[in-house]
Amino acid sequence: MARTKKERLIERAPNFNGFKPFGVQNETKTKVLLYLEEYEAIKMCDYLLLSQAEAASRMNVSRPTVTRVYQSARRKIAKAMVEASIICIEGGHANIHTLWYKCPHCSIKFSILPEAPAMCPLCNSLEIEKID
């Protein structure tokens, strides 16, 4: 089996499914699959104008990995633009960058809200552990 990919962390998934070209003359309905981490790489590098090093640190992967993911994204988008394909944003090897904590009293894992203090939502205890 090929070397397993390290999970790429993304801030959030897009709240739409992709793009469809309109006014297509010969509709071939081909599809390009843009992975969630590739969408995130485009967002960080081309929209937020971060450096690839900064994007790598946010995605928790190495800088060469971001370069590869970004190049793949650009190539796929170019292919969709030239071939008038639908772009589906799904799949890949990503996970959401959530802060998960554990409460040993209640035997639960839970997510916390940004800016809010970290305490167990069921017993309000502050004796919670962060999960990596």
Partner: peptide
């Protein structure tokens, strides 16, 4: 997960 984070709803996963 992304949706709930955006809507500020906390997720709880029981372990037992």
């Amino acid at each position: 997960v992304s949706f709930f984070q955006q809507e500020n709803i906390q997720m709880i996963i029981p372990e037992n």
